[in-house]
């Protein structure tokens, strides 16, 4: 197992720090650890999409936990990326109901359009592709998640192309 140190310290923006304090405050007295998962989400956001060792150590300190407790949790959940990822992570559901509607086709199409394999990052740093399990969109397959949003019924090349174009546009603005 290799751990990724980014070599640069992590800092939360003032707004993120305030958000973190708000999260901690909402749990009962003495239950600070409950804030761990929400704050790891925040840390991932603040750290360019992935959790470096520095980011996790920072969270550990914030919540008075030992670093290993944070590593244990971060490695358990699939939403936490422990290696750098593209700016847009295209997370394609490949579970049964999606598979019968063309999840493998969607994966293939994305791979050939972007020229990268699963787990890789496009040279422009914009995209990476990842398989995930059921996202609770089974009736709207094939689909993928990107950031906050689900993109559903991606069943034609045109729709896939339009999605990629839309994301590229977004990146420029």
């Amino acid at each position: 197992m290799l751990a990724v140190r980014s070599g640069k310290p992590v800092t939360f923006s003032a707004q993120a720090l305030e958000q973190a304090q708000q999260i901690i405050r909402r749990y009962p007295e003495g239950q600070k650890k409950s804030a761990l998962i929400p704050i790891l989400h925040l840390a991932q956001e603040q750290n360019g999409g992935f959790l470096s060792v520095e980011a996790m150590d920072y969270v550990a300190e914030m919540l008075d936990l030992s670093p290993i407790e944070v590593y244990e949790v971060a490695t358990f959940y699939t939403m936490f990326h422990l290696k750098p990822v593209g700016r847009y992570v295209l997370e394609v559901c490949h579970t049964g109901p999606c598979e019968i509607k063309g999840a493998e086709w969607l994966l293939q199409t994305l791979k050939s359009k972007l020229g990268v394999d699963e787990g890789e990052i496009t040279p422009d740093g914009l995209f990476s592709i990842r398989r995930v399990e059921c996202l609770a969109a089974c009736g709207y397959a094939p689909m993928l998640q990107c950031g906050e949003r689900y993109y559903e019924f991606l069943n034609t090349e045109e729709k896939v192309e339009a999605l990629l174009e839309h994301l590229r546009q977004n990146a420029n603005t």
Binding site: A35, I37, H41, L63, E72, V73, V132
Partner: peptide, 27 residues
């Protein structure tokens, strides 16, 4: 009422794994 996010683990739907996860632990 507090909304608490998970982070990608089917097993956290099992009620006791969910409670562990809510306590900030592995599910």
């Amino acid at each position: 009422i507090i909304v608490h996010p998970g982070a990608g683990a089917y097993i956290c739907g099992e009620e006791t794994a969910l409670l562990e996860s809510l306590e900030g632990k592995r599910g």
